[in-house]
Nucleic acid binder design. Structure first.
Lengths: 126, 126
DNA sequence: CGGAAGCGATTCTGAATCCGAAGCACCTAA
DNA sequence: TTAGGTGCTTCGGATTCAGAATCGCTTCCG
């Protein structure tokens, strides 16, 4: 398995080990952001968490959880539920501005929906 | 090609079209965050951008650029260089707290490098 | 006791994605 | 003419993801 990116070590696409590059690698993996998001207010067990993540595949969920545990963003309770560590919680907070931005993004795209309709994807929504 | 995630439309792993879920899909694709990051202060052409992104593969770069153009985070100058739109710039700003966080993350991992050494990744650093 | 259901977790196969070298057409400078 | 840089595409192979099946365990209920 691809090792968990950590600051101080070279990662995928960056030999420097700069913390930010490690973070971009970690968060650039599918479902990583989502998992942190879904754990924002409350611990969740494996299957409940999977359900909240639109039934993402269990194999990938396990993989992401291992990485996030390894990176110390998560820890596991005695009853084996997953929860954000203080560090993980601060990561969530660092991601919060994204919520407001996505709202703005949504509004922006509604104002001018499709000036140059790209390839095969021009339906406007039902 | 996988369509560009946009708020208001169902995306990979979320049928709701909630803006945030679309954003998490968009940014959860490899190199998306990095590209925005590298364009933060200044336009860049294709190949220079590729070099800044640790020589990421050109095919994937093209794919990401298409998506980001489509999502209106980028636009292309007459000389074909790429630049952040105002929306893209605000996305970058929304991501900035991540820089501080990654610093904190780095320090945290240095303080306690490996209490429960996971599976196959226990080397302490060279 | 005997299910039935939920849980965390693993394994496996096929699909989606990514990588990276090679190449094309174009432009500019020497 | 040659050499180099550009934006961009193609294609075969490697990696990652998806999703169903399955295991062992626990809890609940008749």
């Amino acid at each position: 398995m691809m090792p968990t990116p950590k600051p101080g070590k070279p990662v995928r696409g960056s030999a420097t080990g700069r913390p930010l590059m490690s973070a971009l690698d970690l968060f650039g993996r599918r479902w990583s952001l989502r998992i942190i998001w879904e754990l924002r207010d409350g611990e969740l067990g494996f299957r409940p968490l999977q359900q909240r993540c639109d039934n993402m595949s269990s194999s990938v969920l396990r993989q992401r959880l291992t990485e996030l545990l390894d990176a110390r963003l998560l820890y596991q309770l005695p009853d084996s539920r997953y929860a954000l560590t203080p560090l993980g919680h601060r990561a969530y907070q660092a991601l919060r501005p994204l919520t407001r931005w996505s709202q703005e993004w949504s509004e922006e795209l509604l104002k001018s929906p499709a000036e140059q309709p790209a390839h095969g994807d021009a339906d406007v929504r039902s």
